[in-house]
Every structure is written in structure tokens, then in C-alpha cells.
Design a binder for these strands. Sequence first.
DNA 1: GTCTATACCGTGATAGAC
DNA 2: GTCTATCACGGTATAGAC
Lengths: 195, 195
Amino acid sequence: MTMPKRDTYTPESLLAVAVGVFNERGYDGTSMEDLSRAAGISKSSIYHHVRGKEELLERAVGRALEGLFGILEEPAARRGRAVERLEYVTRRTTAVLMDELAYVTLLLRVRGNTPTERRAMERRREFDQRVADLLRAAVTEGDLRGDVDARLATRLLFGMINSLVEWYRPDGRGSVDGDQVADTVVRLAFDGLRR
Amino acid sequence: MTMPKRDTYTPESLLAVAVGVFNERGYDGTSMEDLSRAAGISKSSIYHHVRGKEELLERAVGRALEGLFGILEEPAARRGRAVERLEYVTRRTTAVLMDELAYVTLLLRVRGNTPTERRAMERRREFDQRVADLLRAAVTEGDLRGDVDARLATRLLFGMINSLVEWYRPDGRGSVDGDQVADTVVRLAFDGLRR
DNA sequence: GTCTATACCGTGATAGAC
DNA sequence: GTCTATCACGGTATAGAC
């Protein structure tokens, strides 16, 4: 309710700062010292907002997973021919990656060193599985080529989409640029490079 | 010349162990303690073979880059239509990724925290640039579609290929399995998922 | 809500015996 | 070539004043 007069950190606003640093230096490569410098407050003040470094990671990957699983709940991902649903999910996943870039980046880089990380990886695999099922259905319905392994194809599809976090940087205004990226991803994935 | 009777470490054999641990736990997440346990020797013994942790990283990414740039020197990557050279480079890059999996994995995960890492990233960008040039040439020669940005397409192509390090694990004997992966990568990249 | 001060531990690295 | 012992440092986290 209260509109804060000055910038005092909430767990949420601190998270935004932390995620930025995590992605620059890597989670393990980031010290609380690094975070405190980036946030402009002392190390110990951070502990006033969150229980520790790992809680920041947990919140970040949670947000990313929320965005991804949200796609599967959207109507267009649940009705119609499988190939069209797959195309929709491909486009939307690309969009979510760009919208929640920092959070998804962190999710994709998690290695499984802690229980938090392992849970995140498991949920991510779950999402991949759901898309693989969709791709399989599209093959069965005769819209996608049957001469590629569905699991392999899904992995390569996600490889393409997920690579966004390595190079995509939001530019000026609007989502025009983002739409072009999503178009290209869909075009390449479904129709290939060849003329 | 001398054939060692027992297993005593060389910088090379120690590197193989280290790269495995780096990829499991992440470079920053790996302590010398971790390495010593994996190698079965004490921390200080490691310093007898290499100058430190960073030298191990340097050797590893060096080996990966050697493999990648080697591709561009091969005859089939230097003669003929651009589209065929690009197809060849795509297939060979996939193969090198699988052959030198651990080393390339490490290279792809480098974040730029140290001078060593930054040099590695620069060389990698150089390689990407060379492939982007090839793709551009293939568009000019009329073999690839002109409605996608060459730089963007190259990034997505590498996204697909490089994702191998996230899931590919060498199986039983022979490169049969690997050939199938390379075939699928080329097919998907050039002709797409659609039937 | 932020600070200073500090506890306590694991880190990368070295010295020197065997 | 490997070890034990040790170092200085920086890491996460806590205590308690303001």
C-alpha cells in the first residue's frame, strides 16, 4: 500500500540486481561482496532482505520456471493440431526468454551443485518433456517429418531457442525486434535454412 | 620415450581429470580440494604438474579451439560452393563437439571473469564470424534463403550445435550414434522440421 | 534498514620432508 | 612425485549499535 519515498530494497528489487550480477560473473563466481557493491549496500544488509545467496537463486529460477510453464496453460497451447500448438509454444518460449531474459539465463546455467539447483533442473526437464510429447504428436498427425528422432529434435529445437540467452540483448523500444527474432526461430526450426 | 610402469600424472592426464570435474561442478564451483580428491593425489601435488587452476582451464579451452579452427583448414571447408562448405563445417563442428566433448563444453561455458577466459571468448567469436561469412556467401550464391539475417541465423545454427554439450553423452562403441546426431543436425538446420 | 566489526571456515598456494 | 603442515586471503554469515 505505502508508496516508498526513496529506494529501499525489497527482496524483489534486490533480486533484480543480484540476477544481473549472477549472469555476469556466474553464480559461483559471485561473492556477497560483489552483490553488496552492485546493490550499493553492505554485505550484512543483504541478509536483512533474504536469508542468503541461495535464496536469491531460488527466487530467480522459480520466476523463470513460472514463465515457461505458464505457456503450456495458454489456450493456444492446448487446442488444435499438434503442429500448430508446437509452433505456438516455440514462438512463446522464445518470447518468454526475451522478456524474462536474466531469470531464464540463470535457470539455464544451473549445474546441479545444490538441492535448489537440482530441483530447478528437474522442473526444466519436465517442461522439455511436455514439448517433446507435442512434437511426437505432430509427427503422428503427419505434419512433421518422421525421419528424425523426436527426443533429439526437441533437444536441438531447445538448443536453438535457449541460445538466445547467450547473445540476445534488448535494444531500444518495443517488441518489434523481439518479434523478428521469434519469427526467424520458427521459420528456421520448421522450414530450415535452405531456399 | 619411457613407457611409465604405473600411473603417474602428466599435465595431460591430470587435465583430463580436471576437465571432468570442471564440467560437473562448474569451473568456479570446483576447488583444488575437489580436484585432488578426483585425481587421488593431494592438493599440493597438483602444483607439481601445473602452475594452478587457471592453467588447467587454459590448456582445456586451447585444445577445444584447436579442434574447431582445424575444421576451417580442411580442404572441404575451403573449396566448392559456399552452401556445401557450410554443410561440411556444420557436420564437422558437430563431430568435433562430440569427440572433444569435455573440452568444448568447458570452452562454451567460459564467462569472461579472467584474462584467460576473455581470450578464449574472443577466439570463439572469431570462429563464429568465419562461419557467418560462409553463410552470407551461400545466400549470395542463391542456395540459402535470403529472408533471414545471416548473423542471426548463424547464432541459431550454433545454438543448435552447441546445445550438444548439454545432453550428448558418448555411448557404446563406434561413431555410428554420433553420425546419426550429425545427420539430424544438418537435416534440421538446412531443411527444417516440417514434412 | 543499514552499518561496523567479527566469527569461522574453505580457498588457492607454498615450504620442506621423504 | 607425493606428502603433511601451514599460510594469507576472501568467503558466507552473524551480532549488535545506530
